[in-house]
């Protein structure tokens, strides 16, 4: 039995850490970190095999945060998993910190690859999936993409590679929050119909509510049973999810909460159902 309530509570804690570390840093990406919190929680606290005491464990599942600007959600998940002390989150974006503005694998155990330049992570995930298969290691690779990010051509090169090499140990998740920096994806550069595109590229596609933990868990589980092709979970999400003043607003893409906004956020996140 999956303890959905436990995962929902973890998600709430992760959102709390995200807004706190961002407000403390005074800069960073709020909206896209919050929208991905449920997905990342399901991966780190339910689905993935990993060992915070042994980050290089060869049998571990891999997570590639292709949308690297959502570093805070990754850092929160790593801290709450026990990769490092939670107090380190206070150093986010500060000189000398291993918690760089965008994740750097050279600095921080638990980060699999450096990301932040959009569009590159799915290729790396393909390489990892190939490498694991070649080594006979029965681990899975997860890759989180942004919906604006998939405007990058390289994503589609990688989409071809994943299906050409039948990478069924690869599962991509699209944080489909419909917003990017300059506004709605549909205004900036339409990506729809996203499901049809991946289907046409030879992928197995699920569409779920990316804030419904049961649906996330189910999709991750079923994805594992699909053989012969990669899976993408198109997760319908709300940018800034969990804090009413950030929700659905493009302008909270790349700004940190102010002191006042943090107070509102913490109140909502502690009382709310997340």
């Amino acid at each position: 039995m999956v303890d959905i309530e436990f995962l929902q509570e973890k998600t709430r804690q992760i959102r709390v850490e995200i807004v706190k570390m961002l407000a403390n840093a005074g800069s960073g990406h709020t909206g896209g970190s919050l929208s991905a919190a449920d997905i990342v929680t399901a991966l780190y606290f339910y689905k993935m095999k990993h060992d915070p005491k042994n980050p290089q464990w060869i049998q571990r599942d891999r997570f590639v945060l292709s949308k690297g600007h959502a570093a805070p959600v990754l850092y929160a998940a790593l801290a709450l998993s026990g990769y490092f002390d939670k107090s380190l989150l206070n150093s986010l974006r500060k000189l000398g910190s291993p918690l760089q503005g965008h994740p750097c694998c050279k600095n921080l155990p638990g980060v699999e690859v450096s990301t932040g330049s959009l569009g590159q992570g799915l290729s790396v995930a393909c390489g990892m999936a190939l490498g694991l298969r070649l080594s006979g290691i029965n681990s899975r690779v997860y890759c989180l993409l942004g919906d604006g990010e998939i405007q990058e051509g390289q994503v589609w090169e990688a989409a071809m590679t994943a299906s050409h090499y039948k990478l069924d140990n690869l599962c991509a998740i699209l944080d489909h929050n419909k917003l990017q920096i300059d506004g709605a994806c549909s205004d900036v550069m339409n990506i729809e119909p996203v499901e049809d595109k991946f289907l046409a590229f030879g992928w197995n596609v699920f569409t779920i509510d990316g804030h419904n933990m049961q649906q996330i868990v189910d999709a991750l589980n079923v994805a594992e049973s699909i053989k012969g092709k990669p899976t993408i979970i198109v997760a319908d999400t709300i940018k800034g999810k969990g804090v009413s003043i950030f929700e659905g607003k493009a302008q909270y893409h790349g700004v940190a909460p102010t002191k006042e906004e943090l107070e509102i956020a913490l109140k909502e996140l502690k009382d709310g159902k997340s």
Partner: peptide, 16 residues
């Protein structure tokens, strides 16, 4: 697709 090739190579390297 040279960009993808380099990314895939990195992924392979990161699995040893």
């Amino acid at each position: 697709s040279e960009q993808d090739m380099i990314g895939v190579a990195a992924g392979l390297a990161l699995t040893g």
